[in-house]
Design a protein around this nucleic acid. Structure first.
Lengths: 232, 232
DNA sequence: AAGATCACTTGATATTTATCAAGCCGGCAG
DNA sequence: CTGCCGGCTTGATAAATATCAAGTGATCTT
């Protein structure tokens, strides 16, 4: 197995500041696996033996209960996931499946915990990352408890537009039926919600979205830094 | 100001393992303040200058957007809050108000961060605490995205029953109008939901709740360790 | 003790969201 | 090329949830 992914992992804020020897130690015990699309890599309730890093492809975290399913987040390269379960040595709260063919690096959880104790910089980075994850879920919680589905979609589109460079037109990064579950609604209602947003200058053609006048949409969506700004 | 609260704070998992000198250093720069009921101590968006610890009384975290309000959690002694904002040195995502007259200890955020770098045990404890907080929000998110309001109430009652000793009767720890917002519904619908749960042996008189047959209610509520077990 | 206030409840109604059942359409396999 | 399949859409309907408007009962205040 090639070591070509080391620099990419090293560049992650989680690993960028730690001592070389500790980074090397982690990389030596980790390995890379390639998964085909639509494979459930992690099932909620299982014990967390590895910290996962998405090197290429895409992974989604989802949860099920009583026959229902919802999507919690989509993870794209290069990022880690299930850090909290790894740290706490507790069962996964979310399942994960590949959306596309994906390369995943796996670092044994016990080694992550060991290096945490030995490397202060790494410990600092883990805490920052965890705090970031925590704040992201709090924002998601505010989004769903304070907004209607139409408002959630409008704000999602505004975030996505910004993320994709700020131009009027951009492509949805995931299928609509998945976006619906991510936003806490059904695919049918997502369809209707897109139509309802035409009144605010939003047009859709397949995965392509066009926002005629951002300010017009913002007047309806009322985006807030404390919900929609994923960088803080 | 008395130092009588030191042992209580020291007993928190967050502070129990750290070196004496570091604990003393934190306590020296911290102070205690007593707030009357219904005081907004923290407003979302403000910068996070202190880590807060509820010594007595009760505090609730809530969020607002576009004229709407929701409650995120209730914090009772002895526990910390807004740890993530303190660590990241980022704005608060949630506001906080006292429910009763409360004594709050305040530790300057910069000192928390400094001791974090100096004390590995403390760093470890912070990470564990943060991971716990993260997992709690994920569970809350699953609760609200996968369940109807009636199911959320049923599971809340089962959790509360267990928490209060497991007997058939127990008292709601917060007002019903607050419970409604915590569960993501209106007070009116909470009232109706209680009535609907009569069909499963739940009776309510004021703050008192009686569950005739736990198993009967569980058949409807379908509690899951991955949503309702707050200890893992 | 009388009046005011507030949490809670109830009923009627409106809105939001989900479900069910087709139908459309583009990609893909045979 | 043709037919099938899956994602998407649409319409009709049902269920869940919110809103509005009273009304009740307890507590607090004066």
């Amino acid at each position: 197995m090639t070591e070509s992914y080391y620099p990419d992992v090293r560049a992650l804020h989680l690993f960028s500041e730690m001592a070389d020897e500790h980074f090397e130690a982690l990389m030596r015990v980790s390995y890379v696996q390639t998964f085909p699309p639509q494979i459930e890599m992690i099932t909620e309730g299982d014990s967390s033996d590895f910290l996962h890093i998405v090197l290429s492809g895409a992974v989604e975290q989802f949860c099920t209960w009583n026959g229902r399913e919802t999507i919690m987040s989509t993870i794209r390269p290069i990022s880690t996931f299930i850090l909290a379960a790894t740290i706490k040595d507790a069962p996964y709260l979310m399942s994960a499946r590949t959306l596309e063919k994906s390369r995943i690096a796996l670092i044994p959880s016990q080694d992550v915990r060991a290096v945490f104790d030995a490397d202060g910089q790494f410990a600092r980075a883990i805490v920052t990352e965890l705090a970031q994850c925590y704040r992201s879920v709090v924002k998601a919680q505010k989004d769903i408890k304070l907004r209607t589905s139409l408002e959630r979609l409008a704000n999602y589109l505004l975030r996505q537009q910004r993320y994709s460079g700020g131009g009027q037109g951009f492509d949805l990064p995931i299928e609509k039926r998945r976006l619906a579950l991510l936003l806490g609604m059904t695919p049918e209602n997502l369809s209707r919600a897109f139509k309802a947003l035409q009144a605010y200058g939003v047009t859709v053609d397949g995965a392509g979205v066009h926002i005629r006048d951002r300010e017009d949409l913002e007047r309806f969506a009322k985006p807030s830094a404390l919900i929609d700004d994923y960088s803080s």
